[in-house]
Computed example of a mutant assay.
Amino acid sequence: MELRHLRYFLAVAEELHFNRAAQRLQIQQPPLSQQIRQLETELGVDLFVRTTRSVRLTEAGRTFMEHAYEAIEVVERARKAAVMAAQGLTGKLRVGFTGSATYALLPLVAKRFKEAYPNAALEARGELITSAQVAALLSRQLDVAFGRLLAPVPELELRVVRRERLEVALPADHPLTACESVRVADLADQNFVTLPGRWGSTTYELTIRACADAGFSPHVLQEVSQTSTVIGLVAAGFGVALVPESCRHINVTGAVYRPIAGEAPRSDVVMAWRRNNEMPLLRQFLALFDHEI
């Protein structure tokens, strides 16, 4: 049984006249009658009662008609879904966000995605450090990620989507909060709270580099796995931290942010994806964010 058999059957069932049905289908009447006979033979039942004056559905024909409509509808929905998938309008996109981008960019990205592609799904994973994002992209667990890469990765395409600098996160009662900006050198005798260096955190590497440029090695009191926890410990007075400026979106009582005096280290947000990922929905997503956000 082929889809055309169902279409032929429905045309005759609706018209109850083989000639009119053939004209509607733009075919000759004898081939139409032959196709209906083949369908009845395949089903093993008569679908129509035919006389020289009329055509009417049998009980089997009326039952088959209901299911034929359903089958046509299913096929049509499948066709539309396939076309939309090929155009990148449906499907699921898996997106990863580094710590600060979870709070600064995820709401913006998710809102814009939902408005542009209401029939597609976005699976967001937040608070991923850079090394975890790269691993997830290369292992095809993520389709695209917003992170802070210091060096190119051969298998990945990178695009800067937000330019940021590091800032200093301080406890609210810290004396340096009285300053409009803070020199990194002024933090030499402070305890630091950071993301884990052993896990390949970009912010950790930038912190170590900034302190080295200022002439000291930071005393890291505690390493934690999430950016929000870094800010929480700073607010609790465990130490200070160098964090991307978008961490200001993490509004924790007791934590205060100050810009770094002079030329602050850059910590740009990049969008990364696999070079060989030809997923149509990804291509639509990349077009949606083809400029800085």
Score class of each variant (00 low, 15 high):
A235K: 13
N191D: 14
D189A: 15
P259S: 05
V95T: 04
L156T: 07
I72D: 10
F97S: 00
P280A: 03
S246R: 02
L6S: 06
G126C: 09
E123I: 08
A235N: 09
S217R: 14
T229M: 11
L39M: 14
V95F: 02
V230K: 01
A101K: 02
H17G: 15
Q190I: 05
A212I: 01
R56H: 12
A85Q: 13
I27R: 10
Y69I: 11
L57F: 04
S267F: 05
V153G: 00
D290L: 03
E164P: 02
A136D: 04
F64S: 11
T130G: 07
H219P: 01
L195E: 11
G126S: 07
H174S: 08
Q23P: 02
G232I: 01
D46Q: 15
V49K: 09
T41C: 02
V75H: 14
T229F: 06
E263N: 13
T102M: 05
V252Y: 10
A214E: 03
F48C: 05
R20P: 02
T130Q: 14
S228Q: 11
V270I: 07
E70S: 10
A255M: 07
Q222A: 14
E157I: 03
E59K: 13
M271E: 12
N277C: 00
E245H: 03
R37E: 11
V55S: 05
A236T: 01
R62H: 14
D268L: 02
R183V: 03
V74S: 08
A110Y: 00
V160C: 07
R37D: 11
E155W: 06
P218E: 10
R209Q: 15
V144D: 04
A101W: 00
S100R: 00
I72R: 12
L108G: 00
E14H: 15
E14T: 10
E278P: 06
S100Q: 02
S100Y: 04
L16T: 06
F97M: 00
R79Q: 11
T51A: 02
A272S: 08
A78E: 14
Q284H: 03
R37C: 08
P259R: 13
E40V: 14
L242W: 09
I129K: 04
S228K: 12
P280Q: 08
I208M: 15
I231G: 10
S225T: 14
A178H: 05
E73C: 01
E2L: 15
R7Y: 03
Q26W: 05
E278A: 14
E2C: 05
R148W: 09
L206M: 11
H67G: 06
